[in-house]
Write a protein that binds this DNA or RNA. Sequence first.
RNA 1: UCCCGAGUAGCUCAGGUGGUAGAGCAGGUGACUGUUAAUCACCGGGUCGGGGGUUCAAGUCCCUCCUCGGGAGCCA
Length: 433
Amino acid sequence: MTSPYARITELNTHIGQVVRVRGWVTHLRSSGKVAFVVMRDGSGTLQCVLVKVSLPAETWEQYGGLSHETTIEVAGEVRSDKRAPGGVELAVTSLTITGPSPADYPIQPKEHGIDFLLDRRHLWLRSGRQRAIARVRHEIEQAIRDFFHKRDFTLVDTPILTAAIGERSGLFSTEYFDEGTAYLAQTGQLYGEAAAAALGRIYCFGPTFRAEKSKTRRHLSEFWMVEPEVAFNDSDDNMRLQEEFVSYIVQRCLERRRDELIELERDLSKLETVVAPFPRIDYSDAVRLLERKGSGVKWGDDLGAEDETLLVEGHDRPVFVFNYPKEAKAFYMKENPDDPRTVLCNDCLAPEGFGEIIGGSQREDDHDRLLRRIEEEKLPIDAYGWYLDLRKYGTFVHSGFGLGLERTVAWICGLPHVREAIAFPRMMHRLRP
RNA sequence: UCCCGAGUAGCUCAGGUGGUAGAGCAGGUGACUGUUAAUCACCGGGUCGGGGGUUCAAGUCCCUCCUCGGGAGCCA
């Protein structure tokens, strides 16, 4: 009487066989003498059919003890049936409750407020939409690793606890033994530059932290970023790498996560056009274009979220905006030899108003110019001694970029807010669960 | 930090000009042999975010505080 365990996703290879399935109850429907239990095992969902007259009384009794999210083990014959969602169902002969669930399970198959759901994120993750997002995110992460691995990049894990270094925006800090204050990393880039001089092509991929008191659909206090750094790549090489990278990720999701994207009601035609090369707009041209479109932006300003949306209007793939004014960008970006007011850098703006997913640049490789920029920004020179060494001992042209994982997940899945793109989002007003 | 918006049943919300609260879903009970977020009947469920004020009377009007959401700045 011990039939084999099967995962729901593989049941169509067991038609006519008796199997056991373990999982959680997601829906209950009863018609008196026939009852339906829809269950989830993590691999898929399955409709189980219980017919009163063909079941032992105690098995039928068990049905009455079921509620939403009860953990059960069922056994029965796998049947092909047009009336079943997915075309396959289980004709139950025995049912065991292995984990009861009280009747007050809070998440119903209906609309809820975002605050309510985020307070119950640990349970919300069980819903179909959240599972689809998790699978697309996984595919994106795997695609990122495969892309770089195939191109002979070496993964270098950079520190999360750092001294004061990186960018200017808000830092999380903590006491660090006798060394004073440590800061949670906002980027692995500077360390990536050091590693690029050792290994040529590297990338880092990990969590990063920004303490800005920011409350918008594009912000998290903790998010994941992938940052490649390539020796001897100039800014043009850098953009070519970006467009090939982004196209690869999108096409791979279309190929392997189509079902999830359809469940998320994503318009796939908007993703199918994401193929390199991407259009490129010089910053100064972008400002002129924005002025014509009625934006209040002036040369020298960074571009706002609304400007970004205006720039990608009419494009069916991401758009590069390159060579921003020096003042709008970080100290480590290389001065543009053709226009010293600007630096060799680019943003990559996702279409449909999803905004900036990549920031990249060629790095300043001239020791003295970099030193001057550090002084101009009034950054603590002591902390940057090792970074300047990279220019002192065998300087080299190099470029890299950072791609925000959650923004990319949000774009590909069509999510209005990045908070759904990560299992347990960290935001200004949210540290738990 | 600034600008909007919202807090009413477990959840999502409705409550013209002030007269001490209502729906759907969820929960409970019952009916139903093929349901698809099943359907139908009945039942329980509320310090209307906190405090203060105006008034015979406040969910409703005024003040204040709190919490949250959306956006801005900044960024991936």
